[in-house]
Amino acid sequence: MILYLMCFALFLVGLYGLLTKRDLIKIILSSAIMGYSTNLFLVLFGYRRDATYAILTPNNSGQAMVDPLPQALVLTSIVIELGITALLVALAIRLYQKYGTFDITKMRSLKG
């Protein structure tokens, strides 16, 4: 259970950064941290004690294997996360060109 709790703490660290930081780069990094903790939590959930990886080789046909379903879900989640990061970076660069800063409290005006 301590592993689950540490994963949750990592998620909360990301949430803290998202709520309190003013720098746009730090906000992007916080969302990345939240994504890591979620992925890791799902894979932790599918681990089976003393089991091998879920790939068949000629040598390990009879052994117990870990749960492959969370791994398949997380595989797609990682890829989407990189797409989201690229989109956020593009938006941050656009905002920087418009306002000349990454500080979100100075991005109040609708017209640059």
Partner: peptide, 25 residues
């Protein structure tokens, strides 16, 4: 956690995300 598929994908995508972030910021 016996997930070599995910380890490879996470490693490569992390490298790529670092390249994007460094390149941009």
């Amino acid at each position: 956690l016996q997930a070599p598929d995910l380890a490879i994908v996470q490693f490569l995508f992390e490298i790529f995300a670092l390249v994007i972030l460094v390149r941009a910021f």
